[in-house]
Design a protein around this nucleic acid. Sequence first.
DNA 1: CAGTTATGGTTGAACTCTCAAATATCAACC
DNA 2: GGTTGATATTTGAGAGTTCAACCATAACTG
Lengths: 162, 162
Amino acid sequence: MTETRWLDTEEQETWRAFLWTSRLLNEALDRQLQRDSGMPHAYYMILAMLSESPGRSLTMTDLAAIVHSSPSRLSHAVNRLEEAGWVCRTKHPRDRRTTIATLTDQGFEVLAAAAPGHVAEVRRNLFEPLSRKQMLEFRETLRTLLVSLDPALEAPCARDAG
Amino acid sequence: MTETRWLDTEEQETWRAFLWTSRLLNEALDRQLQRDSGMPHAYYMILAMLSESPGRSLTMTDLAAIVHSSPSRLSHAVNRLEEAGWVCRTKHPRDRRTTIATLTDQGFEVLAAAAPGHVAEVRRNLFEPLSRKQMLEFRETLRTLLVSLDPALEAPCARDAG
DNA sequence: CAGTTATGGTTGAACTCTCAAATATCAACC
DNA sequence: GGTTGATATTTGAGAGTTCAACCATAACTG
């Protein structure tokens, strides 16, 4: 046990600002999506990531990695999305362990209907307050943090960054 | 209904980086505190904010504002903290509607025991990856977002900023 | 001062998330 | 080719959060 190095004032302020900002932003997005589309933000992201994938399909494991969710959380979420008829599960033909989640046509329509309101909310809360320069700096800082939080990201990001 | 203005690539990347970063950081903190001190991060914050207040006490409404929590969430949380013996509730003598939450001695000890590990985790995940300059930029950006998310903050911040 | 409105706080039900344990399939090995 | 270990996913129970509804008290108004 070495002596604790406490946060100085600026660190404290930065940390709390990050905390409250991420909380308020997430809550704002959750509220908007829940109100307008009846789903939490995490579920929207699942639909969105599926819609961007070839065949609108992904392995549960791949999907979990993309949305940064635990396998368990994703499984529960896909249960709900499947009940709603927005996603369906299939078994992989070669490897019967893996299941494939596919966005249904109905799911795609729901996503398409939800997207404009969601994007507007993101724009209003995240991009309108910031200058372009500030946004780009912000992105770099977040990327730095992200790589440190999840080192597995570094390789893939370098690979497919456009 | 006006035409939706979608996010361009840089905005998309910024938004997702923010999303994953805040998710991973919050999860890392939650895991560390749950493992080492048996409480989620939101509860730690409640204890921490009480400990910084005069008399280690705050009105439920004030406490809710400080930790950016809904009244309902705070009430449920204080129920748990009270069961654990870390916080106790009192009635306000003048206004019998308001209840006052006070950090107990035991609660203070638990907080003191949890703090070093928590601070170390924050430092490791947030400050070690960033330069000082980057941190200060980050703080300004977050403050901008915060004021936009919760305009009520602007006045108080200006008032008691040291 | 009675009636209305606003404020402070709590509760219960529904839902999501977490963690640990369980299931099923594939891969390797001797 | 039957164990052993790794991989892919699911399940169930417990805990936290949300939302709407509710109770109590204070403040205002005619």
